[in-house]
């Protein structure tokens, strides 16, 4: 599909465009104050990385990354919105914890990346164009890597079961908690009209009134 051995000017230009977009959107993730925006900006960043993979000739890997990241970020958005304070950025807030430490760690990692990029030795074995990479991937999965592949399947089923155990109502409270779909929820005496800025102390099993982790600092 793409001649990787002698990239055309289109490939060069596209690479820089995608790379810049990936970095920019990644940066915006930490500058926005809406959880939904942050999640989908992260998705945009991943999509651009996927596009770069496509430019590198990863016909399956690139598209698979686009596909996977899209649904995973969507699911992440559900959880981010559910548990984060101020989920839509109605009031301003900062998105980073421990900014000094984070900045220091970021610079160290960035420096490390630069060192590897400049002084590291990269393999120089471009694939010839038209090589059936997807067929080779499939053969590999059916052959030598069968065991890895199957154990991944088992691990993912364990993940499925584990996530259900942790999250479903019945698993957490057992039959005793009742599984009547329309069991009336516990009532709060006031119609949710707490004075603004006051945290209602309604804490039971579910963590405190403002969603456990109290994400972000006051601005």
């Amino acid at each position: 599909m793409i001649d990787v051995s002698s990239p055309s000017v289109f490939v060069h230009v596209s690479f820089w465009v995608f790379a810049a977009a990936a970095v920019l959107s990644g940066w915006r993730v930490f500058r926005t104050d809406s959880m939904v925006r942050a999640t989908f900006l992260l998705l945009v960043s991943f999509l651009n990385v996927g596009a770069i993979l496509l430019l590198l000739g990863g016909a399956y890997l690139g598209v698979a990354l686009l596909f996977m990241m899209t649904v995973e970020m969507t699911v992440m958005a559900i959880f981010m919105v559910a548990f984060m304070m101020n989920p839509a950025g109605l009031n301003p807030m900062v998105m980073v914890h421990q900014p000094r430490l984070a900045a220091a760690a970021g610079w160290v990692l960035f420096g490390g990346g630069i060192v590897v990029a400049v002084w590291g030795r990269f393999p120089d074995r471009p694939l010839e164009p038209g090589r059936p990479v997807i067929v080779e991937l499939g053969t590999e999965l059916m052959g030598r890597s069968m065991l890895i592949f199957e154990s991944a399947a088992v691990a993912l089923v364990a993940t499925m079961i584990g996530s259900v155990v942790l999250s479903s109502r019945r698993s957490r409270y057992g039959e005793a908690a009742g599984d009547d779909g329309s069991l009336p929820p516990p009532l709060d005496p006031v119609l949710g009209t707490y004075p603004t800025g006051v945290v209602p102390e309604t804490s039971t099993d579910g963590g405190d009134g403002h969603g456990g982790d109290g994400h972000g600092g006051m601005h």
Binding site: L90, N91, R169, P186, T196, P200, T202, T204, G206, G209
Partner: peptide, 18 residues
């Protein structure tokens, strides 16, 4: 104002909208 939290039957305390 923004919505405030309240308990629910599945043990989570998320926002209630009057």
């Amino acid at each position: 104002p923004m919505a405030m939290t309240g308990d629910d039957r599945d043990g989570l305390a998320l926002d209630r909208l009057p």
